[in-house]
Amino acid sequence: MDIEENVVRSKDVKKVFTMGKISLEALKGINIEIKRGEYISIMGPSGSGKSTLFNMIGGLDKPTEGKVYIDEVDVAQLDAYELAWLRCRKIGYIFQTFNLIPVMTALENVTLPMVFAGMSTDDSMDKGVELLNTVGLGDRLQHKPLELSGGQQQRVAVARALANDPAIVLADEPTGNLDLKTGKEIIVLLRRLNKEKGVTIISATHDLKMLDVSDRIFWIRDGKIERVEERAGIKLEVGTVEGEE
């Protein structure tokens, strides 16, 4: 296997949460390898460790044991400045609750990561407008998050995630707070960006609509990878899936 192409790799990642005297093993040794340009879904019921794994991959939390490599760099070895750089430039995040900054307009939300990255105001504005056009919100630049619908907010979040041309976009339940149709639109949008920009997309979800577009699916249960499926191996009719949801 060509190790060069792994944009994310984890080795025996374990995470233990300690709450008083009770300790909970959320992840029990996760080994995954994700290649550049893949569209990955991490599926599993709530409480299975999806979000914990998501946080580990995104460098938002540190594993109790084991290693996470992003572009073959051990995340645990990075200092605060390098970690901030990584979050700013290498990884784009999308959340279930959108997490836009409420006091800023759509355009300002999208340009914030570019400001952090040191881009000039003019350049970041141009790029912000372009990104918002890409996600279909070219006419909503000056709207505050509260003036936008859930689906529109998530589109802004997608645009923001792409601000610094990251290698990876991490999406934690991106459709969790959206209705069927809008959720589907976000999924299609992510897939399109995945194809067009070649950005790796890793999405923690229990939305079965995701299956259809994913290259590979990691099924996770009780903190362990239960099985990994290639898309070719999945026989699902989208119609019935949507009906179940």
Binding site: G58, L60, A80, Y81, A84, W85, R87, C88, R89, Y93, F95, T97, N99, L100, I101, P102, L112, P113, F116, A117, R160
Partner: peptide, 15 residues
């Protein structure tokens, strides 16, 4: 949540 978001976007503690 806002602070967490900012940090995800690459904000340093000093910001």
């Amino acid at each position: 949540r806002e602070i967490g978001t900012m940090k995800c976007l690459g904000a340093l503690d000093s910001f």
